[in-house]
């Protein structure tokens, strides 16, 4: 069976899973249903010949599940009463998404068709990567040699994000120990 058939099936399953995750009332079921989408992405990476990405996506999915469940478990008191504003926003969201989808179909005709990438810069990486960097895994040679500054920048972004998360969560503790103006 061609890879496109598998991908169509997986993507349809993922769209269904994400809609279910957004519409469920129970927040724990919603977080677990989003796992369908993440593991579907991981499976699609395997079909698309990217085993490194499949492993990283799988780990990401597990970590995200742990973070979300750990943070939001037991905080179930958020029953949203349905208001007229909510219904209006749902309608606006559906109409906007459908309009963007149908208006952007001509853009996708301009892209190179599936399975025939341009590969002008990348062809050099494939041809000369082993000789120039000595790495058998060409993805690793791109990350750590050809685009090393890019990786350094992204690691800085990751460090800043984690630092920000710790700073936000720590300020609670200092307020509590100091007994300050926290209401």
């Amino acid at each position: 069976m061609p890879v496109e058939t598998w991908l169509t099936f997986t993507l349809g399953f993922m769209i269904l899973g994400s809609i279910v995750a957004l519409e469920l009332k129970d927040i724990l079921s919603s977080i677990i249903a989003i796992g369908i989408v993440g593991l579907g992405v991981s499976m699609s990476f395997l079909f698309l010949q990217a085993p490194d990405l499949a492993i990283v996506q799988f780990l990401f999915e597990i970590f995200a599940l742990i973070i979300l469940v750990r943070a939001f478990i037991g905080k179930e008191n958020h029953q949203l009463e349905s208001s007229s504003t909510n219904k209006v926003m749902t309608g606006v969201g559906i109409v906007a998404a459908a309009a963007i989808f149908f208006l952007s179909i001509p853009v996708f005709r301009l892209l190179p068709p599936f399975g025939e990438p341009l590969m002008q810069v990348s062809q050099h990486y494939l041809d000369a990567g082993a000789a120039e960097t000595g790495a058998a895994n060409l993805v690793a040679s791109v990350i750590l040699d050809y685009r090393a500054y890019d990786t350094l920048g992204e690691v800085t972004v990751l460090f800043t994000a984690i630092l920000g998360a710790f700073a936000i969560l720590r300020s609670t503790a200092t307020h509590k120990t100091a007994g300050g103006d926290h209401e």
Binding site: V56, F60, I143, R147, T151, V155, V157
Partner: peptide, 18 residues
Amino acid sequence: VDPLPQALVLTSIVIELG
């Protein structure tokens, strides 16, 4: 297959976790 998008997405997934 093209290794360049794979390399960039690999870091992008980690950033997404952050």
